[in-house]
Measured scan of single mutants.
Amino acid sequence: KLPPGWEKRMSRSSGRVYYFNHITNASQWERPSGNSSSG
């Protein structure tokens, strides 16, 4: 399961899957890690 705020999306241009955070408006190709504590 993804960390809070993150969701899986697909890029229309490349067709690749990326991850988008609707809370911080951040996007990245790598899967966000939800196990590590923020610090």
Score class of each variant (00 low, 15 high):
residue 30 E to W: 08
residue 22 H to C: 14
residue 30 E to T: 06
residue 10 M to W: 15
residue 15 G to I: 01
residue 4 P to I: 08
residue 26 A to M: 14
residue 27 S to Q: 08
residue 14 S to V: 06
residue 27 S to T: 13
residue 11 S to N: 09
residue 13 S to Y: 09
residue 14 S to N: 10
residue 29 W to V: 07
residue 38 S to R: 09
residue 33 S to W: 09
residue 17 V to C: 14
residue 9 R to S: 02
residue 20 F to A: 01
residue 13 S to T: 13
residue 24 T to K: 03
residue 24 T to L: 05
residue 3 P to I: 02
residue 25 N to P: 00
residue 38 S to C: 15
residue 29 W to A: 06
residue 34 G to M: 14
residue 18 Y to N: 01
residue 22 H to L: 14
residue 15 G to D: 06
residue 1 K to Q: 14
residue 29 W to K: 06
residue 26 A to P: 00
residue 4 P to N: 08
residue 33 S to A: 11
residue 9 R to E: 02
residue 39 G to V: 11
residue 33 S to H: 08
residue 24 T to R: 02
residue 23 I to E: 10
residue 23 I to L: 11
residue 31 R to W: 12
residue 9 R to F: 05
residue 22 H to K: 14
residue 36 S to L: 10
residue 24 T to Y: 04
residue 23 I to K: 06
residue 1 K to H: 13
residue 32 P to R: 00
residue 34 G to N: 12
residue 22 H to P: 08
residue 2 L to S: 02
residue 10 M to L: 13
residue 38 S to A: 12
residue 5 G to I: 02
residue 9 R to G: 02
residue 18 Y to F: 09
residue 35 N to T: 13
residue 37 S to F: 09
residue 17 V to M: 07
residue 7 E to P: 00
residue 36 S to M: 12
residue 13 S to H: 12
residue 37 S to G: 12
residue 4 P to T: 07
residue 23 I to S: 06
residue 18 Y to C: 09
residue 6 W to T: 00
residue 24 T to I: 04
residue 28 Q to D: 02
residue 22 H to F: 14
residue 32 P to D: 01
residue 38 S to P: 13
residue 14 S to Y: 06
residue 25 N to I: 05
residue 1 K to I: 14
residue 18 Y to R: 02
residue 14 S to I: 06
residue 7 E to H: 08
residue 38 S to K: 09
residue 7 E to D: 04
residue 11 S to Q: 11
residue 38 S to L: 11
residue 37 S to K: 11
residue 32 P to N: 01
residue 9 R to Q: 03
residue 26 A to L: 13
residue 33 S to N: 13
residue 15 G to L: 04
residue 37 S to A: 13
residue 13 S to I: 14
residue 3 P to M: 03
residue 12 R to H: 11
residue 19 Y to V: 00
residue 12 R to W: 05
residue 6 W to Q: 00
residue 26 A to N: 09
residue 31 R to H: 14
residue 9 R to W: 01
residue 24 T to A: 03
residue 37 S to W: 09
residue 6 W to A: 00
residue 9 R to I: 07
residue 33 S to E: 12
residue 30 E to L: 05
residue 9 R to L: 07
residue 27 S to D: 03
residue 4 P to Q: 07
residue 18 Y to T: 01
residue 15 G to K: 09
residue 10 M to E: 08
residue 34 G to W: 15
residue 30 E to Y: 06
residue 36 S to K: 10
residue 24 T to N: 06
residue 19 Y to M: 00
residue 18 Y to M: 01
residue 37 S to V: 12
residue 15 G to N: 08
residue 18 Y to E: 04
residue 6 W to S: 00
residue 12 R to F: 05
residue 26 A to F: 10
residue 23 I to Q: 07
residue 34 G to Y: 14
residue 15 G to E: 05
residue 22 H to R: 11
residue 16 R to N: 07
residue 28 Q to A: 04
residue 22 H to E: 08
residue 3 P to N: 02
residue 34 G to I: 13
residue 1 K to M: 13
residue 17 V to P: 09
residue 31 R to K: 11
residue 36 S to N: 11
residue 11 S to L: 11
residue 8 K to W: 05
residue 23 I to F: 11
residue 22 H to Q: 10
residue 23 I to Y: 11
residue 15 G to H: 07
residue 36 S to R: 08
residue 8 K to F: 05
residue 26 A to H: 14
residue 29 W to L: 09
residue 8 K to T: 09
residue 20 F to Q: 02
residue 5 G to H: 08
residue 19 Y to Q: 00
residue 4 P to V: 08
residue 31 R to Y: 14
residue 1 K to R: 11
residue 7 E to Q: 07
residue 6 W to P: 00
residue 7 E to N: 04
residue 29 W to P: 04
residue 21 N to E: 01
residue 31 R to I: 10
residue 10 M to N: 06
residue 35 N to A: 12
residue 14 S to W: 04
residue 7 E to Y: 05
residue 36 S to I: 10
residue 33 S to M: 12
residue 4 P to F: 10
residue 37 S to M: 12
residue 13 S to C: 15
residue 20 F to T: 03
residue 19 Y to S: 00
residue 18 Y to S: 01
residue 39 G to H: 11
residue 29 W to R: 07
residue 28 Q to K: 03
residue 20 F to N: 01
residue 39 G to Q: 11
residue 7 E to W: 03
residue 18 Y to D: 04
residue 16 R to H: 08
residue 14 S to L: 10
residue 36 S to W: 06
residue 23 I to H: 09
residue 24 T to S: 08
residue 22 H to I: 15
residue 39 G to E: 13
residue 18 Y to H: 02
residue 7 E to S: 08
residue 21 N to G: 00
residue 30 E to F: 05
residue 36 S to T: 13
residue 3 P to H: 02
residue 16 R to D: 07
residue 20 F to D: 02
residue 35 N to L: 11
residue 14 S to E: 08
residue 13 S to R: 14
residue 16 R to T: 07
residue 34 G to T: 11
residue 3 P to D: 04
residue 31 R to D: 11
residue 16 R to A: 08
residue 28 Q to R: 04
residue 31 R to T: 08
residue 29 W to N: 06
residue 17 V to D: 09
residue 32 P to L: 02
residue 8 K to S: 07
residue 6 W to F: 01
residue 10 M to Y: 15
residue 12 R to G: 09
residue 29 W to F: 09
residue 28 Q to N: 03
residue 28 Q to C: 14
residue 35 N to Q: 11
residue 2 L to E: 15
residue 35 N to I: 12
residue 24 T to V: 03
residue 19 Y to R: 00
residue 15 G to T: 03
residue 9 R to P: 00
residue 30 E to P: 04
residue 35 N to P: 14
residue 2 L to T: 03
residue 25 N to F: 09
residue 28 Q to M: 04
residue 31 R to Q: 08
residue 14 S to H: 10
residue 30 E to K: 05
residue 1 K to T: 14
residue 6 W to V: 01
residue 7 E to A: 05
residue 5 G to Y: 05
residue 33 S to K: 09
residue 5 G to T: 02
residue 33 S to Y: 09
residue 21 N to L: 01
residue 25 N to D: 04
residue 27 S to A: 14
residue 2 L to M: 06
residue 17 V to K: 04
